[in-house]
Amino acid sequence: MKHRPWFLYTMVVFGLAFFYVPILSMIVYSFNASRLATVWGGWSTKWYGELFQNEQVLEAAILSLKIAVVSATAATVLGTLAGFALARVKRFRGRTLFSGLVTAPLVMPEVITGIASLMLFILMAQWIGWPQRRGFSTITIAHITFSLVFVATIIRARLLSMDRDIEEAAVDLGSRPWQVMWDVTLPVISPAILAGWLLAFTISLDDVVITNFTTGPGNTTLPILIWSKVKLGVTPDINALATITVCIVGLGVVVAGLLLNRAEKRRQKDEAMAYQENR
């Protein structure tokens, strides 16, 4: 007789319902014909049509994507370097401060990070004349700073769990340190680098608070636009926008998950076959 933890399974089901009911409700109401967001007025897709003609939304989305791509790429480069420093260099001047700088933004309340960055930008404008206008560049700098520490954390963890023997093997086989880096280390940790980029991209695309403080007039990202609209209440077009976002992200994550799962299964099958062949 095996004991089945029914209570736990029930909680899992309730937990998943808690996660998904609000999102599903939002999706259903995005097809609501009524202008009143909470009163059902029949099925309609008109809000989607309006959304695609709303230039303000499209502009904001494009700006958000631009910032996300640039900041994720820069954050991945800087974060990978920082991850290397933390995982591989046991002693250097100011290591304690450096590891503090890589951890602190993870726990710093966003309001503080945002206001602190804004103060810096204002003071810099006063003292050195840059930035005269806040917008793309200031938002991107703030996003890079914020998301590079996430990348660094991922890369550091990957490097610490990596088998150092393969690097030594490459040195043993005649490669110089920088060659080892290109031939062995970077290819082996490349999935972690990709994961870091995706995380940085998502963080940037999603950020409201820090963007709110570091943006200037006329530079509205999508989350800022949504935020300002949501403050005024629930509207069907936001429901539609939210549904599109959720669907794109959901699809992306599910596809990535399935691909990873399939790669893992194939690897297991290969290993099992190799094992049997040699018996």
Binding site: P22, I23, D206, V208, I226, V230, V234, I238, V246, V249
Partner: peptide
Amino acid sequence: WTSFLLRVYAW
């Protein structure tokens, strides 16, 4: 992974 803001909005 879905937007934080939108999750608040859903509620």
